[in-house]
Design a protein around this nucleic acid. Structure first.
Lengths: 212, 212
DNA sequence: TAGATTGTTAATCGATTAACAATC
DNA sequence: TAGATTGTTAATCGATTAACAATC
């Protein structure tokens, strides 16, 4: 009987990085790869790479030869759900939200932006890359009809918590939060935060240490 | 004698989150706060909050009253270097890079975007929010003159590694990398990665678990 | 004073690394 | 076969949580 191993957050984060590297390998005609090889390139330890790959693939690698590049690619893509498309809406179509609406890269990882929402009358009704920007007060009504469960939150700080209430009402299940504050959501909604301030703080600290 | 405590990456990431929350408190006229209070709101443990605050502030809190909000704010801002402005350039002025050039929020955490660089002839010479877009081959020449040490990397995947070589030559010390691949930099450059694919992967996984 | 909050020291938890036998 | 790579089990490392005495 197959018992699927538990995976940690850190491991999940590494999967897209392996994937990108392996796709590059694949495009260059590389057929096989091994943990030591991936390890050397990406700077992770061999053991870590091995354990990460063990979580996503059922079959084990072969001593001496390693694993087939195309197999790992498929395993990771399957694990991450890149094959079945998920839809999302963007709430807040300012600089960042607008850039995301234009950005074509999301579809490579199975995410399709269906529409945008905003309160700015100048934006409402316009389309960005074929996606319409709807008024925020249509959100509760439209989201169930669009059958979308993920919202990308790129609103100003002040309005974000009130938007969360709307998203709850609309039946949204996951929020990809780019607003740099803590969101108070219930148990029904999961949140993943991308906090640029946090990231920059880490960079600054690394810089200071490196300059010493 | 003061021995400054070591701080972990996780702790650094939390600092801007405390800061935002405390600034909100401050704006609402709240004068004092405590670890239990912050803990309750942000969902971290009390002990964690206490230890985090201990790293940034020299003075200790007072039993029963806690700490002065304005003091913690100052301590965190000082620690993060929000008071002394750092400059940065943006390399790759596409959707994301362009959005960053327009984005006013960076200056609140002490980061000033000086200019952009791109290879696209249609973009070169234009200005976004007062910042000029220069041709990429002027980078090595201009960066030392601008006295800038941080580069925000928002180029396409294919060109990113070659841009890194230019950044090295130009004397850049830190790269804030938004390109979803592993960058090969030397010991002189520090990199902080913001990988949207990793972040989305985590959200998707949380969603799957929550739906079960 | 009593109690809430503090900081410190110890215990736990989780993730990474090391060690090693198995195998193509 | 020999050696590179594998997967597993144990050891280490780091971060979080628990326990508790100190104090305003």
């Amino acid at each position: 009987m197959e018992v699927s191993k538990l995976i940690s957050k850190k491991q999940i984060e590494r999967l897209p990085i392996y994937l990108k590297y392996l796709q590059e390998n694949y495009n260059n005609g590389v057929e096989f790869t091994s943990a030591p090889q991936i390890s050397k390139y990406l700077g992770y330890s061999e053991e870590q790479v091995r354990k990460d790959l063990q979580v996503v693939s059922k079959e084990s690698g072969k001593p001496k030869t390693g694993r087939k590049v195309v197999d790992i690619i498929n395993d990771i893509e399957t694990f991450l759900g890149y094959n079945d498309v998920t839809s999302a809406i963007i709430v807040g179509c300012g600089n960042l939200g607008g850039a995301f609406m234009k950005y074509g890269g999301f579809k490579t990882f199975g995410l399709k932006i269906l529409a945008g929402f905003d309160i700015d009358a100048n934006k409402i009704g316009k389309t960005i890359d074929g996606k319409t920007i709807f008024p925020l007060d249509k959100l509760v009504n439209l989201v169930p009809r669009l059958n979308v469960h993920i919202a990308i939150l790129t609103t100003p700080v002040e309005s974000s918590q009130s938007v969360v209430e709307l998203l709850k009402q609309a039946g949204i299940k996951g929020i990809w939060n780019f607003v740099p504050i803590h969101l108070d959501v219930g148990d029904d909604i999961v949140v993943e935060n991308v906090n640029l301030a946090s990231s920059l703080a880490v960079l600054s600290h690394k810089l200071k240490r490196n300059l010493k």
